[in-house]
């Protein structure tokens, strides 16, 4: 049995500390936003989780291409890990956003481009797992998964663009201002540091979970191989 690498153990602890520190910065250090009040503090974790989830999804599409070219199952295991961790983070993003939207927009949910695309992207990657569940042959499962993840990665930005035809009320805090956005605000110095720290913290946490999940995938693979050997 391979031992958990020391670097991973350290990373586990570091992620935990970073999570606590990010929470401290967001809840205590960052000043209260004038108009929205305390609920704006959700923002730091909302963007932090969205950031890593989206990077994870882009990475997934890249891994699809790599798998389809190399046909090495290692890339498939990495892809499953990336999708799984990203799906969880993205779900957190959506839930946090919803919590913020209730006081800011006076509704839990609207059919705004970003929200709709987020919901559809989440459904695409849940469908990805349902597809994989229905296939027993590992090579076929990896191939189909890669194809579907690639189509999903292609269609998510297309969907976003399609809905963008209509107006959006989602605030754009970073880069660019949308006059029709509701709940816009600009960040002060402490807010900025809390924000960037949250981004950093979630990136590390993502890498940690990702790594753990890849290890898990490798163990699963070993177990499957052992089962096959035992059945012969």
């Amino acid at each position: 049995m391979n031992q958990k690498p020391l670097a991973l153990k350290v990373l586990d602890i570091v992620s935990l500390i970073l999570l606590l520190a990010a929470a401290y910065l967001a809840i205590v250090v960052a000043p209260t936003e004038k108009v929205m009040g305390d609920v704006q503090r959700v923002f730091y974790f909302h963007v932090g989780t969205a950031w890593v989830a989206l990077i994870g999804f882009v990475f997934t599409a890249v891994l699809s291409v790599i798998y389809l070219i190399t046909k090495n199952l290692k890339w498939d295991r990495i892809q499953v890990a990336a999708v799984e961790v990203s799906v969880v983070f993205f779900l957190i993003t959506i839930i946090l956003g919803s919590i913020w939207a209730r006081p800011a927009w006076n509704t839990w949910w609207t059919w705004d481009p970003r929200l709709t695309t987020a919901a559809i992207a989440e459904l695409i990657y849940i469908a990805y797992f349902m597809l994989r569940q229905g296939i027993d042959d590992p090579d076929k499962r990896a191939r189909f998964g890669a194809v579907y993840a690639l189509i999903g990665g292609l269609s998510a930005p297309i969907t976003f663009f399609a809905i963008r035809l209509f107006r959006t009320i989602h605030p754009v805090v970073i880069a660019g201002a949308n006059a029709e956005a509701e709940g816009n605000f600009s960040m002060s110095g402490d807010m900025l540091s809390a924000f960037f720290f949250a981004l950093f913290a979630f990136t590390v946490i993502f890498i940690d979970l990702f790594w753990n999940r890849i290890r898990l995938g490798e163990f699963q693979n070993e177990v499957e191989e052992m089962k096959l050997k035992a059945s012969y």
């Binding site: 695409i124 579907y148 809905i163």
Partner: peptide, 28 residues
């Protein structure tokens, strides 16, 4: 996607689940 879903165990129920989120932009 149909060529994909017929090769799975859950083929009858899988196609709409795979297809609708992906084809959303076209339908819209």
């Amino acid at each position: 996607l149909a060529a994909m879903s017929v090769q799975t165990r859950t083929r009858d129920i899988l196609l709409p689940i795979l297809l609708f989120p992906v084809v959303f932009a076209v339908l819209l």
